[in-house]
Write a protein that binds this DNA or RNA. Structure first.
Lengths: 135, 135, 135, 135
DNA sequence: GTGGTCTAGACCACT
DNA sequence: GTGGTCTAGACCACG
């Protein structure tokens, strides 16, 4: 896990994204214990409040589960949103990608190829780590 | 052109994206005159400084051309970045889409389909308005 | 008896409330022996210190009675607080309920109905288990 | 608006509750501008971060709407939860009140009376301030 | 002017 | 040990 302190995107957002990514790839799975606030803070050389904010926010989103005095865990991932809503969320990003591509004159074929590469990479990482797909 | 004042993405970014989008789809083309700063500001009900920032930044990116005393125009779109850099920029967004998709259990097929739809829609808009492709 | 480790309300408070609830409904009555600290701790899978805190606090409130070497019992329930104070304590919760209700557009009639249902349910549970009302 | 710094309930929670209360009673209504973070912080003699936390959290709950550079407003209150869910939320508090009442030997009649008093007080405050009921 | 991020450090509650 | 609240103050981005 790496952060860029000089990036335009705030540190706490970078960390949130990486934790989400690790959950998406199965590197972190339901019930796993995350490092303590103090641990992660010193490891990333950021303030404890920054990590606290990360955990609190992910907890509010239902992605993590905080147990006082015990630690922070990956929450049970109850699929709260419907299939069509999920598809819509992904479509939003794809639309943005398409706008960029047309603007930058990148062909649809190149995009398909690139997308497949990324998708397979993430899926295979997930499979390797033994995560279950929720059908 | 619409903006959401209470979005997480800043107003000036929203406007920049929409202008880029209009250029990508050909709605705005090389040489076209954009509305004046105070016109656009009053139309969108935002601060003039915000519009000024938009035009300045797009000018710095080489997308617009500001002519003092005359107005702001769409610049001649000389492809400033290389093919590999363009591909990389698109790949970054696609990667994000892939993470989301795996996390939300959306299949690669659904993504390909969705991506094609969006790509064609934007391309066709561009063609209809008569924009030239720069191959 | 159930606890939620990831709730906002601390575990010891959850247990206290449930013991009070069981006494209110007559499930636990004056003189009854409660499980030992280590028993209850292992049963609920919580720390022994947590149970110790629960028993100590309820003992301090005069609700339980700890006899060293023997065990923890439900104390004789001498009504320690005055009628007006009791009414005030209940009024505080009702006020909160009223705020919620107005905010959520729930009618007074619905509340009266609901309140009566709950009140009767708890009272009848108490009667069934043979608890004496202290008038 | 008053806070008790020595209370067990955290300051930010006290403020959140009071803002919710003011919205419930119609003292604050859709579109109203709240005091700036700095203003409220100095008025209540607490840290700016504390107020920031309040506004952020209420924003996340959809109760407030934050516009960067402009200010914080009461959001349009789209009723996001169904009637049955709303009733359930109120029932939960009423149940707690009933437990307390039975435990403290407060009669159902006293509760009905008290509840009506509180409900009318809040409703009338809301009406006086001219808030619309959302039917 | 507005909100937002981040830090350093104190102090508290829970397990 | 764990997370959580709060402060004081710096610095930034947005309008």
């Amino acid at each position: 896990m790496r952060i860029e302190p000089s990036s335009a995107v705030p540190i706490y957002r970078q960390i949130i994204d990486q934790i989400k990514y690790q959950i998406a790839t199965g590197l972190l799975r339901e019930g796993n214990l995350l490092p303590s606030v103090r641990q992660l803070a010193s490891q990333l050389a950021v303030n404890q409040n920054t990590i606290l904010k990360v955990y609190s926010q992910l907890c509010a989103e239902g992605i993590l589960r905080i147990e006082r005095g015990s630690g922070t865990y990956v929450a049970a991932n109850r699929q709260t949103i419907s299939a069509s809503e999920r598809k819509k969320a992904v479509a939003k990003i794809l639309r943005e990608a398409a706008v960029q591509a047309v603007h930058l004159n990148v062909s649809l074929e190149q995009m398909h190829e690139q997308l497949e590469k990324e998708y397979d990479r993430i899926s295979s990482q997930r499979d390797k780590t033994g995560a279950k797909h929720d059908e």
